[in-house]
Nucleic acid binder design. Sequence first.
DNA 1: TTGAAAGCGCTAACAG
DNA 2: CTGTTAGCGCTTTCAA
Lengths: 348, 348
Amino acid sequence: MTKQPRLADVAKAAGVSTATASMALNDTGGSRIGRETRERVRTAAAELGYRPNTVARGLRTRRSQMIGFVGDDVATTPFAGQMIRGAHDAAREAGFLLLMVDTTGDSAETGEAIAALQERQIDGVLLATMYHQVIEVPEAIGSTPHVLLDARTAHGSSSSVVPDERGGTLGVLAELTTAGHTRIGHVTTVEQVEARRLRLATWSEHVAAYGLDPAELLAEGTGSTSPGGFAAAMRLLRRPDRPTAIFCFNDRMAMGVYRAAAELGLSIPDDLSIVSYDDQELIAPELVPGLTSAALPHYDMGQWAVRELLRRLGEPDAEPVRHLMPCPVSRRESVAGPRPFHSIPLET
Amino acid sequence: MTKQPRLADVAKAAGVSTATASMALNDTGGSRIGRETRERVRTAAAELGYRPNTVARGLRTRRSQMIGFVGDDVATTPFAGQMIRGAHDAAREAGFLLLMVDTTGDSAETGEAIAALQERQIDGVLLATMYHQVIEVPEAIGSTPHVLLDARTAHGSSSSVVPDERGGTLGVLAELTTAGHTRIGHVTTVEQVEARRLRLATWSEHVAAYGLDPAELLAEGTGSTSPGGFAAAMRLLRRPDRPTAIFCFNDRMAMGVYRAAAELGLSIPDDLSIVSYDDQELIAPELVPGLTSAALPHYDMGQWAVRELLRRLGEPDAEPVRHLMPCPVSRRESVAGPRPFHSIPLET
DNA sequence: TTGAAAGCGCTAACAG
DNA sequence: CTGTTAGCGCTTTCAA
């Protein structure tokens, strides 16, 4: 027990050569190895507690059973965990491990990171961004197989997976429509991110389809934060013909909208229904009443990305796939039917 | 550019043997290599864009420049990111990469994870728990160098780093004391975790030192959640001689305490000062008013753990070190002096 | 159906 | 000061 057994030890114990032992353990070489021999090798390995040395194997096969995970900011967004977790689980399932690098978004850093991974002969790379983004694939990637995670290229040259923002938006809007709302406002951020663009566009279409003017129902906050949501909601809710429901860009802004409603004496959901996006663990379920929100499928995206990557390792010339991951709605208590007379007098 | 150059290519280009090239690049072999030769090799390597093959090197040196990060739940706690980030940065600084495994806390899984890491010849392992815990080091670790992160053993047989819960508690209590409070209540959870034990004990000592009976100022919630904090705070604040300030077990419970205060018509901080623990990004600064809270130094702990691990790789027989990481207070607006007549009449 | 032998790319011992 | 040589532990021809 003092020393790791090597393949040679197993071979000797089973009375075969290392070549035979290798093939027996790896089920390789087709029908070359006899049933009985294979058994003998297997039991010998088990008895010795043999574990193959992945490094030595890698030197020979040029594969490491490791996947590089290059993130632009693993730490600051609380979502990151679920993305990593999804990728991790899918990798583990297939006998792979995740080698992590965080680049802080810096592009020189990204090049270095990819080089560091290639030095270690990772079999493929996940290029992850911590929020939905359109990016260029870094040059350094060369011919290393890769999949974009929560990001995509403009041209679709690489496989990628991003949230189906449009679907998620329609999902939460349907919650409101079903409850009887048509005057649905939107509180969003001025930051020009992909998520804003897609959620805003989808909402615009939706209200326009009801013959309403989106411009009259839109309010922008200076950032996608609670104060941003508060300020925007205050403006929106003070309008004479205020909406009976609000679709928020995300949960953080929704926090601010809740505060604005309280400030104005509007009760949720009786006077105002609210839906949102992101379904953040520490916000949506913790607000009172619970916030109905479209979930960002980070776990699923992580998992999908690894599976797609592994598939591409098998068939390197496969066409790139651009996947939209559904955003399921977490239904809570922030939605009710509109009041018969939806225009509640405001004191302020 | 079509093929990665090998050390042999560099050697040939510089007109030396691979051995010389190796030593020149690694600054090894002492004064063996001439200044001029070294230069020549270096430029040749640079021109070819040579990157050493870490796998081949690892096979020879039995070192991989990788550190295993074994976590019991990377995903579900939002803190995890900062811990990983701290470890990552310290590792990167020294030319190491992090190989991540998540065990979901399962002990069979942990054994498998460690084995998978050892197969890949990681140089050392970080054993991380996602909240402060006392654990047994898994058998599987064998003689692999390791450091415990946010965890410690009962006997101190391994190097470990955990938050200084006592120091952090004294820190936030000092905020209250300085503002003039003596009747400081504590809202905690019934869950028997290390953090509860240490924070509770420290607070008890503190109020006892002022001649107060801790039992009269303590309320427990059924879990360390917002509803748990709400229920506990309601009980505590309805007592005839209610505290003028509350120290909360953590920020999530503090959220509930805020709601309870609102419910009872108590304004924060004028009628009630609040301090807390954890300093969670999405809670403490987002609450209104901002919550004064002792920060869990996850980044610093991650960083420390890697540095300690690297140190141990150098001197394997060094005495294990058990480190307490300070928890700095994030000062916000939830603390003010007590009212002259602190007993505000309550309607309820 | 199996064994012997050659290497994957690098470092370290041993010669010069 | 430098070159030659022998492996690290495994997989995979090639020969039996």
